[in-house]
Amino acid sequence: MITKEEIQKLADLARISLSDNEKESLRKDIDGILEYVGQIKQVKVPVGEVWEPAERNVMREDVVTTESGSYKESLIDAAPQHERGLIKVKKIL
């Protein structure tokens, strides 16, 4: 059974704040889901079996397809905080 502390740990790893009430209800939900998906543990699969996509290592030339700067404004504008063409964040050190 998953514990409330584990939920807190996952929330920290996933960078999501949770209220105390929610931690308990999510704990219950995730417990139920893990029980359901846990049934795959019974499946016997041959050693080395792994899913691979149909297309692998698809390469293409690294070419510039747009005019330099043509997306700058719209991309910067999408940032919630920006100043003089730069995305603004709090200091990280």
């Binding site: 998953i2 996952l10 929330a11 790893l13 999501i16 995730i30």
Partner: peptide, 13 residues
């Protein structure tokens, strides 16, 4: 969405 992000974080840990 939060539920699935936490679940995904769990199965990948």
């Amino acid at each position: 969405t939060r539920r699935r992000i936490l679940l995904g974080t769990y199965v990948l840990s």
